[in-house]
């Protein structure tokens, strides 16, 4: 599974990086990020593109999620 690290990046860069990975054909992706806002926005984007979102780590300053088609 491809990994995408968006830790420390401010809005809307995490969403853009995720979108780029999806547009490049990724069907499975492990995404790591740090802010709550980016977690909300990335999972919203993934869901809107028909992905299943599975949040694996959910701390206030670190999160990891798997998204799958």
């Amino acid at each position: 599974m491809n990994k995408l690290d968006v830790r420390g990046l401010s809005c809307p860069v995490p969403v853009l990086r995720t979108k780029k990975a999806i547009d490049d054909g990724a069907t499975e992706l492990l995404i790591m990020g740090s802010s709550q806002v980016s977690k909300e926005n990335v999972s919203k984007l993934a869901a809107s593109q028909g992905f299943k979102v599975n949040i694996k780590v959910d701390h206030k300053d670190l999160w990891e999620m798997e998204i799958k088609k």
């Binding site: 830790r7 420390g8 990046l9 401010s10 809307p12 860069v13 853009l16």
Partner: peptide, 11 residues
């Protein structure tokens, strides 16, 4: 932004 702009990661 679409062309890859970002001001770098915060810690």
């Amino acid at each position: 932004l679409k062309n890859g702009f970002n001001l770098g990661r915060a810690e």
